[in-house]
């Protein structure tokens, strides 16, 4: 697998994504600085977490105008794989590559902890190694992960099985007490209609090695490996 990690000013999970690709997945990975106008030919582009442009104005609002974003859009338009994690998800929303928007967490504070997610769609390149309904333990770390969208958009996401991950209990039950940020319909991660772009608030790169407390997130990278090979 050939992967590219885009670095924006203020990205801070860029090296975490890079290291997982290189050390854990043994993938061929490189960084691309946001001022580049083109991307190297690759299977997967990762928009990492962090505070691009200090989260000033709105999360992801300024990064979407970075020169590299045109190439990222082209990459996605060609049906190749794109994942946005945390701030990367926020950038995808601002750039219109995924529908909806982010609000501040309902607690109004930054939250960093492990949460349970239920996998509600496995028919996509990112979760093909999961069982439908499988729950995974994975960290979140954000101040604005309260996903929102209008009713029509939500219906579209539901009808076309674009909601991949929902916050849940360990047993897979959803409800307010399991939703850390107040996101609509307990959404933690969604796909685009073409199902080649995934945005998610939780950090799979932080749960890909047992020494860090768990490796449930590694299944996402393993799914991608399968998708790229096939």
């Amino acid at each position: 697998m050939k992967a590219t990690v885009v670095v924006f000013p203020g990205s801070n999970c860029d090296s975490d994504c890079f290291n997982v690709m290189k050390d854990v997945m043994k993938a061929d990975v490189q960084y691309v600085w946001h001022k580049e106008a083109s991307l190297p030919k690759c299977d997967l582009v990762i928009l990492p977490g962090g505070f691009s442009y200090g989260d000033y104005l709105r999360t992801g609002a300024i990064a979407r105008f970075s020169p590299v974003m045109k190439a990222v859009k082209d990459h996605a338009d060609q049906g190749r794989l794109l994942i946005g994690i945390c701030n990367g998800f926020q950038i995808l929303l601002e750039a219109g590559l995924l529908p909806g928007a982010m609000l501040r967490n309902k607690t109004l504070s930054f939250i960093c902890k492990h949460v349970w997610l239920r996998t509600d769609d496995t028919n996509n390149p990112f979760t093909n190694k999961f069982k439908k309904g499988q729950t995974i333990l994975i960290p979140i770390a954000h101040g604005e992960g309260n996903y929102t969208c209008d009713d029509a958009t939500l219906k579209g996401l539901q009808d076309q099985n674009q909601i991949v991950f929902r916050y849940s209990s360990e047993a897979g039950k959803t409800g307010e007490e399991f939703n850390p940020n107040g996101s609509r319909d307990d959404i933690a991660g969604i796909l685009n209609q073409k199902r080649n772009v995934l945005g998610m608030m939780p950090h799979p790169e932080r749960s890909s090695e047992q020494v860090l407390g768990g490796s449930d997130g590694k299944q996402i990278w393993e799914s991608l490996l399968v998708s790229v090979k096939s």
Partner: peptide, 14 residues
């Protein structure tokens, strides 16, 4: 307190 701090970024916190 510490859930408001990102205590895992850099993927080194054991």
């Amino acid at each position: 307190v510490w859930e408001q701090y990102d205590h895992m970024v850099r993927t080194d916190t054991v």
